[in-house]
C-alpha cells in the first residue's frame, strides 16, 4: 500500500532568532499536551512537527523568550 506526503500550513510559529533551544531550553516541547513541538534537526530550534494543535497556548505562555506565536489553524480561521 504505497503512501504519499502532503504538506500542511502549521499554526504554531517559532522565531528562530529568539529561540534558545541551542542553550538547552525545551520548555515549549515539554509542556505541549499534544506533543507536536520537536527540535528541528536542521536548525536546532523548536518547531511544529505535526499539525495536530489544540491552540491552547502553554507553548507561547511558558516560552522564556517570547519566541512562540500560536495562530488559529487555517481550517478554523
Amino acid at each position: 500500500m504505497p503512501t504519499a506526503s502532503q504538506i500542511s500550513m502549521v499554526p504554531v510559529v517559532v522565531d528562530d532568532d529568539k529561540c534558545i533551544a541551542d542553550k538547552g531550553c525545551r520548555t515549549c516541547i515539554d509542556v505541549c499536551p499534544l506533543d507536536v513541538l520537536w527540535i528541528n534537526e536542521e536548525t536546532g530550534k523548536a518547531h511544529m512537527k505535526y499539525d495536530e494543535c489544540w491552540y491552547c497556548m502553554p507553548c507561547e505562555a511558558d516560552c522564556p523568550t517570547d519566541a512562540v506565536t500560536v495562530n488559529i489553524p487555517y481550517l478554523l480561521s
Binding site: D30, V31, C32, P33, L34, D35, C56, M57, P58, A61, D62
Partner: peptide
C-alpha cells in the same frame, strides 16, 4: 500521556 504541568482540560 502529556506532561502534568500543562495537561488536560484545565491546561491553561
Amino acid at each position: 500521556k502529556a506532561n502534568v504541568k500543562r495537561s488536560g482540560a484545565i491546561s491553561m
